[in-house]
């Protein structure tokens, strides 16, 4: 409630401010918004989604009537604690670099006999994608507070990093935007939204490290695939296919740049 008042005061200050005070007022507004976010983080609504996900992880499903409890997210079969802090990574068994979501699709196919196309083709937060979001919420909660630790030794990871960096700067579409248009400079905003400079370790850690996240504005939990998809939507490009290589390559570029930063997942966003 205290926070709410502060937010209100900031909003009022903005409403009443004359031109010379404008910059200060907008700083106040930003401060108010940040305080509001902090207050929400105390009792993150993602907990409910994560609880659903934990249940799903342990519940037998699919033609093979098996749970995901033997799924290897990189730290060994069934190890969830700290696993997403080290993703994406190169997996020998699939011969691919995988992020959390594509790795989960592999496990759903292998252990449960489910067709991963059902995930790819579902609408956001519907059907199998809703289940995926719940699993992701559970898994990333188990890495909260850990360090981002991406193993860049495999040549496949180095290759993905290079491809991801090219994708980051790739300008296209009717508005000529790339990721770098908004995330390639320090201290910028879109409207009141502060933008992390994703070229830097600090910026990438702030961005990569706080997604997946719960979005207060629409009451939705968004996975990283969902986040990247919406970035491209706003870039006015064509739509990236769920789990496609460009999404993995960009994830490797961001996560590797963020290496050593703190995992703050699930994040809490406006």
């Amino acid at each position: 409630m205290v926070i709410r008042q502060k937010y209100l005061v900031a909003a009022l200050a903005v409403g009443l401010a004359g031109a010379p005070l404008l910059a200060a007022a907008s700083d106040d507004l930003l401060e108010g918004i940040n305080a509001y976010r902090e207050a929400l983080a105390d009792g993150n609504p993602s907990e409910l989604v994560a609880a659903e996900g934990e249940e799903l992880w342990k519940t037998p499903r699919g033609p093979k009537n098996a749970s995901l409890e033997k799924c290897d997210l990189g730290l060994g079969p069934g190890v969830v604690k700290g696993a997403s802090a080290q993703l994406p990574r190169y997996f020998k068994d699939t011969g691919k670099v995988q992020d959390l979501e594509t790795r989960l699709m592999t496990c759903m196919e292998t252990f449960q006999g489910l067709d991963s196309k059902a995930v790819v083709n579902a609408g956001w937060l519907k059907g199998e994608k809703e289940k995926m979001a719940a699993l992701v919420a559970y898994i990333v909660t188990e890495s909260n507070g850990q360090k981002i630790k991406i193993d860049m030794r495999p040549p496949q990871m180095k290759k993905m990093y290079e491809l991801g960096k090219l994708a980051f700067y790739h300008r296209a579409g009717p508005m000529d935007f790339s990721c770098a248009t908004c995330h390639g400079d320090q201290g910028k905003r879109i409207r009141m939204q502060e933008l992390p400079d994703l070229r830097t370790q600090e910026g990438a850690a702030a961005g990569w490290g706080s997604w997946p996240a719960y979005r207060v504005s629409n009451g939705q939990f968004w996975t990283m695939q969902h986040r990247l998809n919406d970035c491209y939507r706003q870039q006015r490009t064509a739509e990236p296919i769920y789990g496609s290589d460009v999404t993995i390559a960009l994830s490797v570029y961001l996560a590797a740049t963020a290496n050593g930063g703190k995992v703050m997942t699930p994040g809490i966003k406006r």
């Binding site: 491809l163 296919i241 496609s244 290589d245 460009v246 390559a249």
Partner: peptide, 10 residues
């Protein structure tokens, strides 16, 4: 090639 196979018309 990666960009070509990663995007679709929506």
């Amino acid at each position: 090639a990666m960009m070509d196979r990663s995007f679709k018309t929506t």
